[in-house]
Design a protein around this nucleic acid. Sequence first.
DNA 1: TCCTTGACATTTT
DNA 2: TAAAATGCCAAGG
Length: 122
Amino acid sequence: MSHRRLSTASSLSHYQRIWKTVNLIPKGCVSSYGQVADYAGLPGRARLVGKSLSNTPKELSINWHRVVRFNGEIAFDKGSVQANKQRDLLQEEGVTVINNRVKMKDFNWQADLATILHSLEF
DNA sequence: TCCTTGACATTTT
DNA sequence: TAAAATGCCAAGG
């Protein structure tokens, strides 16, 4: 194969960019699907973030639990196995989860541009 | 190529 | 505060 291009604008696929961005979220912080999409260079593609996380290969070990909805709500149904798992993982990191929801004002990740630009190597 | 789905977001009722 | 309507667009069938 002489030349293969995974996507039009980057050598990284959308999924790979998303996984990489998610792993930039610091311990003890959370981010929203839309925010991750923006930082990954895919504005307006929040749903794609969810899709890529659901398709994450097990061997990649992504910090999926640090991604919640824009209002701080955990995306899974309250009381579901997945929601409880995510809540436990977050609380282990010091993130308070009350009624299936995180206080975004307190825990939302504020990334600086330099971190993003440096980490995504484009 | 068309149609549906989705771990979402924003605006309007 | 809550629910509904809309917008969004890559993937998969």
